[in-house]
Write a protein that binds this DNA or RNA. Structure first.
Lengths: 280, 280
DNA sequence: CGAACCCTTGAGTCTGATCAAGCATTGTGG
DNA sequence: CCACAATGCTTGATCAGACTCAAGGGTTCG
């Protein structure tokens, strides 16, 4: 029976080697981490999308910022939690390693998103996260959080709104996974990405993917080859323009039609692609 | 192109007729609802798993309890939110209707779980919920929530712990959906159920399913026929005993082995079922 | 320049969706 | 109290779509 356990799950990465996977060993309080820069209370509240009141604006308190080179882990599933984090810049992959060693990508987080809140309950992170690009995260000491919230109502409100917002997005995973066809899943994922970018004031048409095909595959419950193929389908149908990780939504309506559909279109003649193979 | 939109998504229910789907129209403040029973602040905090302090224990404040006959909707996706709810008894299905009219089951909630917290951000529920059996939910008025939390720290703490706890469980959906084989998905789902029951002091071996096969199917991203078949497989393998909605975990280790595996076992000879067909 | 990784494409196999039909269970009304 | 209707559950047969295995080119980094 042990052989069964050892058998490799297909289509998933055993470990993302990256280049600089430092694998910080649960000790975020190491001196080097107390970082190069800090952020004021007012800026933090603004980052969270709240309105800094007079009290918080005048407050001299500031928070350290954790700088994350690409590939750096921020939290470790099961690791003791000393901080919660607010992403200030960049993007991270949010995942869980399942028992067989493969990673189960819950989602991706960007600026404004809060990481590690689940540690409020057990004191441990429930998810792992690694930076997909050079990123920054504001560190909020878990031990002082309760008092901070009491002392600074504006922070309290902003945090709550943010958590509620993230809870509302919890259905996104179900949304993509509910789709039966791979093309539909990918179309929905791209639309979600587009929405997230728009929420953050970036272009919702032109998106630079920070994650690999394999990450996307693990997120959507598909094989990475299938992601490649589905990108090809969406591109040939005229919905997207795809060149490596640089994608552009050419025809949003057609993309939405794909996302709505439950089965692939087949001969629906969505678009007449003139040249059958224009990818060359 | 409209024909495509109208086409029916396979293996999913358009609407759960039930017997008493009242479909309360967003007006929880209708006089009849202001309910038959109330619950004290101390009891509420206890329900949430917190420790009522002296302040809250002495407080005379109480909250109305919403009684939900089976099939009754508690929240409506997109509906204006006046309350958040804490499940006091029973169980509910938590879902979202996708654009094509099919329901996308995010999960199931039981005693202690909080419903509707996402409304803290936009003021609207992001998910629908219906009672799977006769249930009760404590109503917390959203408008007074901020002040309540300030006035009663014990409530505040309990709510936070509860939210954090639910956030930590957010990975469960990914856990089941990540599995490739239907048998594995179902095995993981059963184990999750078992865990939830154990958390609530119920038997983790004998479980009475309150949801239909179709609900499970929508949750796991499978067809309901497949759920039936997979239950059959797990039963034949000796992991479970299944009679309609009454299931018993006979061999937890074998079930976990199924859950770990990514492909079905095939000829792994997990168990020797002596009589090939003992279901009769 | 080489190594490692990422992305793409192809061919074959197999799981699970789909369609269809029968049985079981439940609740209802006569 | 029983027959009936409506759901829910199960099982069978077929077929399409996605995983798997395999191999090639592209890109990045040291």
């Amino acid at each position: 029976m042990s052989s069964v356990v050892e058998q490799v799950i297909p289509g998933a990465a055993r470990w993302v080697p990256g280049k600089r996977v430092v694998a910080w060993p649960e000790s975020p309080e190491s001196p080097r981490m107390l970082a190069t820069s800090r952020v004021s209370m007012a800026s933090l509240i603004e980052l969270l999308g709240g309105e800094p009141d007079v009290a918080s604006a005048s407050m001299q308190m500031s928070f350290p910022v954790h700088r994350l080179p690409r590939g750096t882990a921020l939290t470790h599933e099961g690791g003791r939690a000393a901080f919660i984090y607010v992403v200030q810049a960049g993007s991270l992959k949010y995942y869980r390693s399942s028992e067989d060693g493969y990673e189960n990508v819950i989602g991706f987080v960007w600026k404004r998103d809060v990481i590690g809140l689940e540690a409020l309950a057990g004191g441990c992170y429930a998810f792992s996260s690694v930076a997909l690009e050079d990123s920054r995260a504001v560190m909020l000491p878990l031990a002082e959080l309760a008092e901070l919230r009491r002392a600074v109502p504006a922070l309290d409100a902003a945090l709550h709104a943010r958590v509620a917002h993230q809870l509302a997005h919890a259905g996104e995973l179900a949304e993509v996974m509910a789709a039966l066809s791979a093309d539909t899943r990918l179309a929905r994922f791209v639309l979600q990405l587009s929405g997230h970018m728009a929420e953050r004031g970036l272009s919702h048409r032109r998106i630079l993917l920070r994650m690999t095909r394999r990450d996307i595959a693990n997120h959507l419950g598909l094989a990475h080859e299938t992601i490649s193929r589905s990108f090809g389908v969406l591109a040939r149908q005229g919905c997207l323009r795809v060149t490596q990780r640089d994608i552009e939504i050419v025809d949003p309506d057609a993309l939405k039609r794909f996302a709505r559909s439950t089965r692939s279109f087949g001969d629906e003649a969505v678009v007449a692609p003139s040249h059958w193979a224009e990818a060359a």
